[in-house]
Design a binder for these strands. Sequence first.
DNA 1: TCGTGGCATTTGGTATGCCAAAAACGTAAT
DNA 2: ATTACGTTTTTGGCATACCAAATGCCACGA
Lengths: 243, 243
Amino acid sequence: MPEPKQTKASPTMADTDIAIVRIAPETSFKNKAYEALKEAILKMDIYATPEPVMLDERALSERLGVSRTPIREAIAMLEQDGFVKTVPRRGIVVVRRTKAEIVDMIRAWAALESMAARLITTTARKKDISSLRDFFKDFSDDRLPQDNIEEYSRANIAFHQALISLSESPVLVDLTNDLLLHVRGYRQLTIGRKDRTATSLPEHLGIIEALEARDTELAEKRARDHTLGLAAYVEAHGQELFT
Amino acid sequence: MPEPKQTKASPTMADTDIAIVRIAPETSFKNKAYEALKEAILKMDIYATPEPVMLDERALSERLGVSRTPIREAIAMLEQDGFVKTVPRRGIVVVRRTKAEIVDMIRAWAALESMAARLITTTARKKDISSLRDFFKDFSDDRLPQDNIEEYSRANIAFHQALISLSESPVLVDLTNDLLLHVRGYRQLTIGRKDRTATSLPEHLGIIEALEARDTELAEKRARDHTLGLAAYVEAHGQELFT
DNA sequence: TCGTGGCATTTGGTATGCCAAAAACGTAAT
DNA sequence: ATTACGTTTTTGGCATACCAAATGCCACGA
């Protein structure tokens, strides 16, 4: 076989790449509903009210202007994610996590993040590691994290996600993102808590330094201990959050 | 309000707890279909054929004797799990993982398992730890794992799952089970590979010893390194498995 | 022979309607 | 007033019908 080059077959079609972009796949109602409901669930403060939050298929289908079918499929997906639980002939309830579950999730998060740190020391570029500091460049002795908790909390989350991303491990990224979605149900109340914020920034910098030094074991340990610290904190001080 | 005690209201119903179990919820077709399809997907050797494996909603609904609706909901769930991917107007394709993805998953597994080991050293009972040895009691110098790969492979999986369970962390258990389902798509070809089997058993025993000694750091390290070893092995020798 | 156009088929997406279980409501008997 | 019981309503589960996009097949014509 003479291998007729990699060019396309038909000579009738000009090979001049007129920028044709794969036409918009027009995501389905099912996926739209999934995204909409997921966002709505994450946005609401599930732990504010003592009584369980219920969803109604028919009401949702009206509000979103679609039939029940795509709604039900979206609900099925959310149930897989662990955000809701449908009880036959009863209703769909938004799942509330117990303190123990949240602590458990944070521990798993710690495990994944420490592995990410480990991988980063062997593969990431110095430049990318150093740029992790940028998340905290708006904070200093003149502008303490404790005094801007809301903002610091966002930077905190962004830092952790960027850190994991540096591992270039899709699995670690996806798993931690899922965990974070659940943990974040606590609108900053935990992660951005004032007394922890003070120690948080130095620990982050310590992690970055270990990564830059390519000290695999140290980076892993610092990443792990930092997040386990959060777990211990929630376990010790998170009572009031769970009615 | 005088708070009329926590007892149940109706005096007509005896409070004597006669073990009534919540009547069989008669799991829905949706869940039955989900389980059936999941098992079918796991049972088939996805990597045997080069061409993609497709599923057909209507065919499935006929074979399972239900309508398309519960089938579609089951498919939606499986898609969340990452087992299938539905392409609009094209079909439902059973997802095939690349070698890199499998390696990635094993690394995540290693992360979770090492955290489990860590937790076990602080909470599990000695007795439960020691019983982990039972999984390998059928193997000895007279009956080497290498000569009973199929059987050893099952013991291997069971050991790892039991290990994680000892952590008493539902999140770790669930996450690793999910990962294992994906990784196991390789019918023993990887985990039970002969050349690795020889070193596997001693490593397992080493993990158990560290757990018994309550040596948190060592147990964590051994658990991690053992599974990372598998990842490295697959990365190095897993070429032939991915067409 | 090869390319073109169009029709039939296949396939997932969505809307609708009905069903049964369970809860909510109401009413009558004690 | 309270309990018991029957009726209505609510709610998720499931089946079915139809739609539109993508594909494949096939006849027609250069």
